[in-house]
Design a protein around this nucleic acid. Structure first.
Lengths: 130, 130
DNA sequence: CCGTATCCAGCCCGATACTG
DNA sequence: CAGTATCGGGCTGGATACGG
């Protein structure tokens, strides 16, 4: 067993999970997968579902997700062209860990906010004391 | 209940979980928390545990984690100064969803790699066909 | 040892315009 | 409708030097 699986407490640069993590944990992927949870959607429908995403960012995100096998892109030859995006089984398997993370943010954002205010107060006091 | 909790299938720009997600899902946070899993460590020990991280990046990451209440920073007044970082209960609660995500990457990176090769082959073929 | 400060290159991202 | 192409500014991230 010599695979670089980031054993114990060191993360080598060539650990595959690091490379993969960068691919899936970007700003938009989690939301895109969640939006596609209960059925295929078209490009602009997805875009409208995620406030603030630009066309370019969504295109890039969808391409990466498709390349990594997390969703499937299907062109429907009508006029004007329609394109459907559907989550793949692999993508569906990723939703569970994503849901856990999303749940954590909902449960703990108040605690984080409190910590943040305390930290900023400490910083402010430290600066004022100079 | 009118809080903007990203109900159903739309993600509004002011959804708190979006803001929080950006804070915790950066390139290094997950690894830092994992490294601190079984006890406090000092700055350079953490740095050596994560290959490729720069001093600046680690400093920024630790600051953000501290600000969000996920770890505690303790200065030990010896000479030269020693600083210990210890995961907080809040940070510990985040390890579980992180572990799920990390586990997913380990389990599925082969499938992703296969999908990636298939995608690239399709792209190559499409370009060659022009 | 544990940082902060500064500088600079690279890329990312949004805005815009255009195509099939 | 679903993209691609291009361009410019901002922000990040690395290298280096310095301070407590």
């Amino acid at each position: 067993m010599s695979a670089p699986f980031c054993a114990s407490q060191t993360f080598s640069a060539d650990c595959p999970s690091r490379l993969l993590f960068d691919q899936i944990a970007d700003k938009w992927s989690m939301m895109v997968l969640k939006v596609l949870d209960d059925g295929p959607l078209r490009f602009n429908t997805i875009k409208r579902s995620i406030e603030g995403i630009t066309q370019k960012a969504l295109t890039q995100c969808l391409r990466r997700l498709e390349r990594n096998g997390l969703l499937e892109r299907r062109v429907i030859p009508v006029s004007p062209v329609a394109v459907e995006y559907e989550i793949s089984p692999l993508g569906r398997s990723l939703q569970k860990p994503f849901a856990a993370l999303y749940g954590w943010t909902l449960e703990n954002m108040e605690a984080v906010e409190t910590a943040r205010e305390a930290f900023d107060a400490r910083q402010g006091a430290a600066i004022a004391a100079e």
